[in-house]
Design a protein around this nucleic acid. Structure first.
Length: 480
RNA sequence: GGCGCCGUAGCCAAGUGGUAAGGCCCGGGACUGCAAAUCCUGUAUUCAUCGGUUCGAUUCCGAUCGGCGCCUCCA
C-alpha cells in the first residue's frame, strides 16, 4: 500500500500533496555538508529532518532516489587548507591540500550519519568530481545569453528573469535596498547578479576552463549534479531555511534557465536550532558537535528523538533538559516493546475500561499515518503511539494480549521505527556472568535474604541491566 | 525600510469556529520484601494583551506587547 504524503511547499507557502513525476518513485535532492569541519547539531538537525522526510516516503511505500551533494570546494575550505603551503606552491599541491582536508571531514560526516542512523543517499557526489558538468552548464547559460563574462569570472544575469525571487518571495526593489550588497569584490552589471564561475585568485587551487583558470560558484554544483543524477524534473529539493535565499533561488534561476521549464516541484526547508534559547556560537560556549555531546554521555539516539519529536518547520530550542525528557520518553516506548515481545502477565488492580486491542491498534496506525502524511507532524504521530501504549498496557495488565495481538503491535512499532529509528528490536542475549548474577539473586530472594538480593540487583544495575520481578515469579530484565 | 514566523500548564509540544492531544517532571494511591515496570488519580475554567466579527474564538480579523528569521558567510 502506498500512502500519499503532503508537505509544505516553500514555493507556494501551502501544504500540498507530493505527486512524484514517476509514480511511486520519488526523486529527492538534499543539500549536503561543506566538508571543512565537524558538523554541529544545528547542521545535524537539518540532516535528521531530511532523513525523516526520506524514511517517511519509504515507509509509506515509495521508492526514493536520493542525491546529497558533498561540497568539497568552497571559500572556507580553501582558507583552512592552504595555510601551510608556500606562496609559489603548484596547483597540484594546492588541490592535494584541499583534498586532504575534505576527505578527512567527509569521512567524519559519514560516521556522524551512521551514529544518528541517518540513511545514506543513493548518490553522494563530490562537487570536484563534476567540474566538467558544471563548466558545460555555464557554457549553456552563456550561449543562451543568460550569463556574461567579466575578468575571467562568469555571472548570471538576473535582469531578464521576472520570476527571480519567487521562492524567497523577495522583490527586486527590496533587494536593492539591502545594505550589504555593495560589499562584494566582484565586478557585476547588477548587484543582484551572482557568480557561476569564479576566476582564480593567487594562492587558490583552480581548474582550467574556457574562461581561464577558476573554480565553480557556490550554487552551480547543485544544479549540475542534480540534473545529472536525478534528471530534469526533481520531485523534492530540501535544505535548511537559510538556503532559501540566495542558494535555492539561484539554483532555480540556473537550472530553469538551462532547462526552459520547472526543475523542482516541491521545495521543503527545515527550521533552525537554538541552544538554550540562543544562537549557537563558539563564544557563548553553546556550540556542540555530535562528538561533544557523546563525550558528555549523551545517547545519540536520544538526540535523534529529541530533534524528530519537534516539528521540522518550527525553531527547536535544544536543551539538556529536553534531552533528558527524550531519553525518558524512549524508555517508555522501549519498555513497552519489550513487554510486547514477552508473554502477558495479567493481574488485577484498578482498571479504567476494557478495549479491543485490534481495533485500538488500527486506530493508532491510522492516526499515526494521518499525522505523518500531514506535513510530517511528528508530535502528533508520536502522541498516537503513546496513547496506544497507555491503552494496551492497561489492557494487558488485566487481560493479557494474545501472541497474535502482541505480534501485530510489534509490527506497528517496527513500521513506526522504520521512520524514527529509535526503538528497534534488540537481541535478548546475556553473557554468562550476568545470567549467573540473576540466578544468584533468585536464590537469595528465595531464601528471603533481601540484603543480598538487593546487593546483586544493584550490581547488575551498575552493569546496565535493570531487573523487573514479574507476578508469576519470573524475573524480566532490560538494559537501562 | 521590505517580506515572514512565533507567543498554549514547571519544561517540551499538537490542535480545532463549539468548548484544550501527547511526552517529561511533580503530588496521592495500587501492585512489590523493597524496588523496577505498569495501572488508577491530581495538576491550564484556559490558550501573550486589548478590541472586533460570530449564537459561540485558543482557533477568523485588527491593534498592542514580547521573542525570532530572511533581504547575497551560514543547516
Amino acid at each position: 500500500m502506498r500512502r500519499p504524503i503532503s508537505l509544505f511547499n516553500t514555493l507556494t507557502r501551502k501544504i500540498e500533496p507530493v505527486v512524484p513525476v514517476v509514480p511511486g518513485s520519488l526523486s529527492l535532492y538534499t543539500c549536503g555538508p561543506t566538508v571543512y569541519n565537524y558538523a554541529h547539531i544545528g547542521n545535524l538537525r537539518t540532516f535528521l529532518f531530511q532523513d525523516l522526510l526520506k524514511r517517511t516516503f519509504q515507509a509509506a511505500g515509495h521508492e526514493v532516489r536520493h542525491c546529497m551533494n558533498i561540497t568539497d570546494v568552497e571559500d572556507k575550505i580553501i582558507r583552512d587548507s592552504q595555510g601551510g603551503l608556500p606562496a609559489d606552491a603548484s596547483n597540484e599541491a594546492r588541490h592535494g591540500a584541499m583534498t586532504t582536508l575534505t576527505e578527512r571531514f567527509t569521512a567524519i560526516f559519514l560516521e556522524d550519519l551512521d551514529t544518528l542512523r541517518i540513511r545514506k543517499a543513493d548518490f553522494l557526489p563530490r562537487a570536484t568530481a563534476y567540474i566538467p558538468q558544471m563548466i558545460r552548464l555555464v557554457q549553456d547559460l552563456e550561449a543562451k545569453g543568460l550569463a556574461y563574462v567579466r575578468e575571467g569570472s562568469v555571472y548570471y544575469r538576473i535582469a531578464g528573469l521576472p520570476q527571480y525571487g519567487c521562492l524567497a518571495h523577495l522583490d527586486r526593489e527590496g533587494m536593492q535596498a539591502g545594505a550589504s550588497v555593495d560589499a562584494d569584490e566582484y565586478e557585476r552589471d547588477s548587484v543582484t547578479d551572482f557568480v557561476l564561475w569564479k576566476a582564480a585568485k593567487p594562492g587558490e587551487p583552480s581548474w582550467d576552463s574556457p574562461w581561464g583558470p577558476g573554480r565553480p560558484g557556490w550554487h552551480i554544483e547543485c544544479s549540475a549534479m542534480g540534473m545529472e543524477l536525478l534528471g530534469e524534473r526533481v520531485d523534492i529539493h530540501s535544505g535548511g531555511v537559510d538556503l532559501i535565499f540566495p542558494h535555492h533561488e539561484n539554483e532555480i534561476a540556473q537550472s530553469e534557465g538551462k532547462l526552459g521549464h520547472r526543475w523542482v516541484e516541491h521545495w521543503v526547508h527545515g527550521e533552525f536550532l537554538l541552544v538554550e534559547g540562543q544562537k549557537m556560537s563558539k563564544s557563548l560556549g553553546n556550540f556542540f558537535t555530535l562528538r561533544d555531546l557523546i563525550t558528555k554521555g549523551v545517547d545519540p539516539i536520544a538526540l535523534r528523538y529529541a530533534i524528530q519529536s519537534n516539528h521540522y518547520r518550527k525553531v527547536l530550542n535544544f536543551s539538556f533538559e529536553g534531552l533528558r525528557a527524550a531519553e525518558n520518553s524512549l524508555k517508555r516506548i522501549r519498555a513497552f516493546r519489550k513487554r510486547m515481545e514477552g508473554e502477558g502477565q495479567a493481574g488485577g488492580g484498578p482498571w479504567a475500561e476494557a478495549i479491543n486491542p485490534t481495533v485500538r491498534l488500527d486506530q493508532a496506525r491510522e492516526a499515526f499515518w494521518a499525522a505523518m502524511a500531514d506535513d510530517l507532524n511528528t508530535p502528533e504521530a508520536l502522541a498516537a503511539i503513546f496513547t496506544l501504549i497507555s491503552d494496551l498496557n492497561a489492557q494487558d495488565d488485566h487481560v493479557a494480549l494474545t501472541r497474535e495481538e502482541r505480534d501485530a503491535v510489534l509490527a506497528f512499532l517496527d513500521e513506526a521505527d522504520a521512520i524514527f529509528a529509535a526503538w528497534p528490536h534488540e537481541e535478548a542475549s546475556l553473557d554468562a556472568e550476568v545470567e549467573a548474577l540473576i540466578e544468584a539473586r533468585k536464590a537469595a530472594k528465595a531464601s528471603k535474604n533481601w540484603a543480598e538480593a538487593d546487593r546483586v540487583r544493584d550490581q547488575l544495575k551498575a552493569m546496565g541491566i535493570v531487573l523487573e520481578d514479574r507476578k508469576d515469579g519470573t524475573v524480566g530484565w532490560r538494559r537501562g
